[in-house]
């Protein structure tokens, strides 16, 4: 749980830090020449949220988005500095009108903050409400067991190391998922 509080605390800091002053923004949009100021000026983020097999949002106007970047949760408000962020397992929160929240768990992927829009490209995304907590803890135990068995024979070849790495990724993802699920209920 402690693991989860830290990035959350950082979020608020980042939200402020990432906001650009007005003059900086106008400079950025001139240099890229590709911005569509109409949507951004209205105080909205133009959001695209894609998976390989699913389109969750396309050109949706939202108030803000919070993505689980590798270095901590990252809040994206209009006129955010152009950024490429790698995502770690965590929750993408889309905040619409009147503070209505939509929460998706993503396994990994990238977020591209362009001057005129924000693209979230996740490898896998599911609604947090669709996650079954029992399945998560089962899968987590499974991966932990695999990790334990493979790291006990850590000196063995690369195949074993790869199996351990896969198990480690599984543990990371399911831990994050469990944290999210238990946090919401």
């Amino acid at each position: 749980m402690n693991k989860w509080l830290r990035p959350a605390l950082r979020t608020t800091l980042r939200l402020w830090r990432r906001q650009w002053s007005a003059e900086a923004t106008s400079g950025a949009s001139v240099s890229t020449g590709a911005s569509s100021p109409s949507s951004e000026e209205a105080g909205r983020v133009t959001l695209n949220f894609f998976c390989p097999h699913q389109v969750i949002a396309k050109n949706r106007q939202v108030v803000s988005v919070i993505v689980p970047a590798a270095s901590g949760l990252m809040g994206i408000l209009p006129n955010h500095v152009p950024t490429v962020a790698q995502m770690r397992p965590g929750v993408v929160t889309i905040i619409g009108d009147g503070g209505a929240e939509e929460r998706y768990f993503v396994s990994s992927g990238f977020t591209f903050v362009h001057p005129d829009r924000t693209d979230i490209c996740a490898v896998e995304a599911v609604r947090v409400s669709d996650i079954d907590p029992e399945e998560v803890s089962k899968a987590l135990a499974d991966c932990e067991a695999k990790l334990a068995s493979s790291s006990s024979s850590a000196a063995a070849g690369t195949a074993e190391a790869q199996r351990a790495a896969v198990a480690q990724i599984g543990v990371d993802v399911y831990l994050a998922m469990q944290g999210v699920v238990s946090g919401t209920r």
């Binding site: 890229t32 590798a70 950024t83 490429v84 790698q86 591209f112």
Partner: peptide
């Protein structure tokens, strides 16, 4: 890609 900030730990 200098126009973009790369976020990573």
């Amino acid at each position: 890609f200098d126009g973009y900030e790369f976020d990573s730990d």
